[in-house]
C-alpha cells in the first residue's frame, strides 16, 4: 500500500492480546492521532462517477 502511494502512517498493524486493555487504548489513541494529523485520505477514494467518466469520448 505504501508503495502505491498511500501515506505510510495510514496503515498500522498491532498485536494486542485480549488481556492488554491499556495497550489497546494507547494504540487506538495513537493511531487516531496520526491519522487526524494526516487529514482526510484523498488517494484511493472513488470519486462520483460524473467526475471521472467522460461524457463525450
Amino acid at each position: 500500500m505504501e508503495h502505491m502511494g498511500v501515506e505510510p502512517d495510514r496503515i498500522q498493524f498491532s498485536w494486542i492480546s485480549s488481556a492488554e486493555s491499556t495497550k489497546f487504548v494507547n494504540v487506538v489513541n495513537e493511531v487516531t492521532k496520526t491519522i487526524k494529523a494526516l487529514g482526510p485520505n484523498k488517494n484511493f477514494v472513488k470519486r462520483p462517477v460524473e467526475e471521472t467518466v467522460s461524457k463525450v469520448a
Binding site: 505504501e2 508503495h3 502505491m4 502511494g5 498511500v6 501515506e7 505510510p8 488517494n43
Partner: peptide
C-alpha cells in the same frame, strides 16, 4: 526509484 519517492509522487507514477 519508486521506493525513494514521496507518497504523492508514487501515486502520480502509478
Amino acid at each position: 526509484n519508486i521506493e525513494a519517492m514521496s507518497p504523492e509522487d508514487k501515486w502520480k507514477t502509478f
